[in-house]
């Protein structure tokens, strides 16, 4: 089938609307923030709220975050949902170390943020003692709306990152030289 006359021209008016000029940082951040794949670290009752947030009523997929990855190698953001005991902390740290950069962490609920009501020898008093946390969500457990809010705050945080300059230093230097 022959192409219509219009596409033969050097200037294609149909493509014009699909070209966007932007900064590379902004483009990378935009792609990252809209496809945050969570690593669900469900350790207690917060995990139930996290599951509710992923299901149809609250529907995390509206924000590109529904792809719960149970392999840390495919995940971008770890949602630590629940009480982190010292025994489990070893596993949490190990999984966090296996996640590729760039990665983010959300401490969901009182226990993950501060140990919560578990003032005990057995419980790590906040996951931030072990791994860097980007967003803390209060609540015991937080409602799904709170988790959504936390994830959207994380999106806002990602918007402000200097994705290329900070994370791809060697690539930028290569391009310049």
């Amino acid at each position: 089938m022959a192409a219509p006359d219009a596409t033969l021209a050097a200037y294609d008016s149909k493509i014009e609307g699909n070209v966007v000029f932007t900064k590379l940082d902004a483009a990378i951040n935009w792609m990252r923030k809209n496809s945050l794949w969570p690593m669900p670290m469900g350790l207690a009752c917060c995990a139930i709220e996290m599951m509710a947030a992923a299901c149809s009523r609250y529907d995390l997929s509206r924000f590109g975050m529904e792809v719960m990855r149970f392999s840390p190698r495919q995940a971008d953001v770890m949602i630590v949902a629940g009480t982190v005991t010292y025994k489990m902390a070893l596993a949490v740290k190990r999984i966090w170390d296996q996640m590729p950069e760039p990665k983010w962490c959300i401490a969901m609920g009182a226990c993950a943020s501060s140990g919560g009501m578990y003032r005990s020898y057995a419980v790590l008093q906040g996951i931030d003692q072990l791994i860097p946390v980007d967003v803390y969500i209060s609540g015991c457990p937080p409602r799904p709306e709170a988790l959504l809010e936390g994830l959207m705050r994380l999106q806002r945080k990602i918007e402000g990152e200097h994705a290329l300059a900070d994370q791809k230093k060697e690539l930028v230097e290569d391009l310049i030289s």
Partner: peptide
């Protein structure tokens, strides 16, 4: 053994810190 725990450190493996008791156990 105190409820809050005792500080322990096993380098490169794990650590434990005493939990803040605030006004004592609840």
């Amino acid at each position: 053994y105190p409820l809050a725990g005792l500080p322990t450190e096993l380098p490169e493996v794990a650590f434990t810190r005493p939990a803040p008791m605030a006004d004592g156990p609840f």
